[in-house]
Each structure stands twice: as C-alpha cells, then as structure tokens.
Design a protein around this nucleic acid. Sequence first.
DNA 1: CGGACTATTGATTTGCGTCAAAGATTGTGG
DNA 2: CCACAATCTTTGACGCAAATCAATAGTCCG
Lengths: 239, 239
Amino acid sequence: MTPHDAAALQPFVSRLLRHSSIGEEERTAILDLPIKQVSLRTNQEIGRVGEHASFSTIVADGLIGRYGQGRDGERQIVALFIAGDAPDLHCAIRPAGGLGLTALGPTTVFHVAHSALRRLVTDYPAIGEAFWRDNLLDASLLAEWIINVGRRSARARLAHLFCEMAVRYAEGRGHLDRFGFPITQQQLGEVVALTSVHVNRTLKELRNENLVSLRAGTASVLDWTELTIAGDFDARYLA
Amino acid sequence: MTPHDAAALQPFVSRLLRHSSIGEEERTAILDLPIKQVSLRTNQEIGRVGEHASFSTIVADGLIGRYGQGRDGERQIVALFIAGDAPDLHCAIRPAGGLGLTALGPTTVFHVAHSALRRLVTDYPAIGEAFWRDNLLDASLLAEWIINVGRRSARARLAHLFCEMAVRYAEGRGHLDRFGFPITQQQLGEVVALTSVHVNRTLKELRNENLVSLRAGTASVLDWTELTIAGDFDARYLA
DNA sequence: CGGACTATTGATTTGCGTCAAAGATTGTGG
DNA sequence: CCACAATCTTTGACGCAAATCAATAGTCCG
C-alpha cells in the first residue's frame, strides 16, 4: 500500500463513469485508494477458492477469468475481466461463493483492502451506488452468458463472445476492429463450454467466412456486421 | 398503493435478514412500503422487454421466470423467483438490459414504486447494502447456472435444479422433502436448456432411480443425499 | 363433453465430444 | 543464438447425448 501513480486506477474510474455520475471529490477519493501492484503468472490464482480474502482486485493489464468447477474437475469460466475491471469488488460486501479467479495469461493487478473500500462506500454513498451498479452490469453479462451457452450453436457462441469482448475492449478506445485478446483455444473452450478441438474447428470456420480471426493473442474483426448477425449479438445488455 | 396487511412483505424481509443484519427501524420501514397487489395469469409478462418500468416486483405467491431470447425466438430462462424474492429489485438502480419477466403459472406479486425504494436506500444505508447483497446472491445463482448449463449432463442439470429449488423453498420452512413447484416440462426445458422431450425422459430416469419426482406441480425429494450427488450440488453458492 | 395444453414414447438424425497423432509456436537454458 | 522441451494448434476417424420428427395418451378446465 505505497504511494503510487495517481493514474493507476483511472481506467477503473472511467468504467464507473460510463454508468454512474460521481463527483470530482468522489473521483479523487477513489484514485487515492492505497493499492498494491501485483504481477501474476499464467494460471496463477488470486486467493484460494472458498477462502475469503481481505482485499479486492482491479485489473491493470492482462486477462482474468472467474471460474467454477464441477466434481469431475472440468472448469467453466463464467466471466472474463480486462483492464479497468474489478473481478471481485463485490467480495468487500459478500464473500465469493465457491468461485475462483485466475490469470489466463501474464497479468498485473492492483490489490485494494476491503476495509478501505468499505470506508469509501460509507463515506460516499454515490460511490456505493456506483459499485452496486457495476455489480449489476456484471450480473447482466452473466445472464447473457447463460443464454449464450444454453441456446446458441458453437459458431454463434464464439461469434457472440468476440462481439462482447470487442465492445468491451473498444470502450474508451473507440475502434472495434482489433484488440489484444490473450487467450488460448483451450481457455476459450472453458468460456463457451466447448472442447478445445471444437473451438479450433469453429474458429477456422469463422476465419474462412471472414468474420473474425484470432492469432498470437490478437483478435481481428473482419466483418463486424456479419459477426453480430452470426453471434445473434444485441449490445443492449452491455449498456 | 393502498394500506395493506403489514405482514405482506414479511417473506421478503426474512430473506434479507438471512444475509444482512438490519435493525428494527429499517425492518418496519420496509414493511410499511406502499405496495399494490397484482394477480398474473400463466405466461403473463411483467412490463415489456426493453421498456423501463417505474416499479419493482416482489413475489407473493407462484413462480416468476426471468428470461432472454435469441433471434430465433427460443426462450432461455436464466432465473426463477419464488415467494419473497424480488426479481427486478435492481431495476430501481439500473434498467434491465433486454431481459423479460413472466409468470410461469398463476402468480401474485406486489408492485413497489422505484421512487419509494430509492428513498429507502438513501434514508437507510443499511437497507441499501442489504439490497445490494441480495443482488449479489442473485448473481451467484446466475454463475452457478452457467456451470450447470455449460458443464453438466441432462440428468445432473435437472438434479441440480431440484436441489437448488428444494433448498430455496426450504429456507424458512425447514424441510427439504417436498415443495410446490408449479412448472411444466416445457418450461423446465427453457430453464435447463433442453428440449421438453429430453426433460421428460430424464425426469423419468430420475423418478425410476428414486431421486425426485414431479407430479401435479409438486416436487418430491425421494433421496436427498443421492440427489445432491447426481446433481453435483454444493450449496455454498446459496449461502 | 370437447378443446387445448401437457406428458409420454419411438425412430432417426446430428452437433459436438472423444481419441489419437502430427505440426507449429513459444520460451528457456546452455 | 541455437536446441529442445513444453505448450498450443490443427486435422482425421469414430461415438454418443441430446435434438428432431412424429404420433398417441392423459389431464385440466370451461
């Protein structure tokens, strides 16, 4: 919890501002939060499943997955988090029930003490509401994920995922056509509930159709309109 | 918004108390909320999809489903709500993004104005936190649902659903062995992402194995231990 | 008693999983 | 800077769980 670059949490604040209006005072209160920067290796967990941590996490760079697993050990990733996201902000209010967080590639995050977050929430009701609203957005993504996994074909599932990530990466950058998406096909399978083999085949199909391609951790959107059609994508749930 | 039976919202308050500690003053403030009782027919929607309502809903009796649909019209139910639940409490804070609510059978609900809820939240921070925590529980169920639909076989999916509903119906009643669950096999399919035909076959299997049965809107748990094993059920996420 | 859902069952098809093995990339230590 | 190990990607052959198609019984309610 050392003094730090005042802009470190700026992406996080920008995210909050997209859905909540919070004043100058609140903004600086968040930016002044004491944080600790931590580097995570590929597949490194944040905390242990079931154990309740004393800090929350904000992603600085890289990709974090929230996952659960069935008895047989099969992992299902239920949410992805990119720079500016707070995967376990809610844990300051309610312990995470059985889900884990893991870095999907080399990632750096900030730790923020729950005590500091709770103080912020009680001192500034507007921040509490912004955090709450952030959690609601998170829940909206979860619901859409259920529809994706439950109702759509492999092709549509992947197309939809690329649409969602393109929009999320584009927020604050402006363009949809290309974004760093450091994920393996195995991990993609854990996200969309398919085997890596089938992910591979389907990805090839999407590439041959000139919709998207994923190479060396970079996703290229080749035809946004057709991709949204293939993925049955309606961005309303991200608003 | 007429004077009403003071106990009408008691199940809702009891639910909140299971996860949050709120004082006597807050409790009565909730119980005194102005409400309007509304009866819903089978398949009757609450509001219109996309349109943002001025009230939230609390279930008095029956079964409500939150659902989304793909372009082809296939419906996926992403959450079920029983007496005491508030399916769209969050809409007081953030409009629902593209999801709808519908009564799965004859149901009665209470409408509560968003304005009244927001006043409660600003006047009593403890209530705001309790509502927030309630939304987080909701999100926890959504995450588990993804795992259910994404990773488990038809048999495990249905078993898991019965486990979850048994626990939820049992909260505040005490016993797990039998509960009113007024849902058709078609609707069950929309919940667990299977066709009604396959739901029927799988239900038959579970009945023949003496795990659960569903007849005339009543679910009977025949062997709780074996059912939790079949459903790979770990109640932690409901805590 | 009749009409409309709801449940049940059988035959057949299919999308995705499983198993297996060969390339391509990436990273690391010597 | 190269070698080689580890990981990731790609492809093929085959199997299976659940979908689809289709038709017959219940069951509820006016």
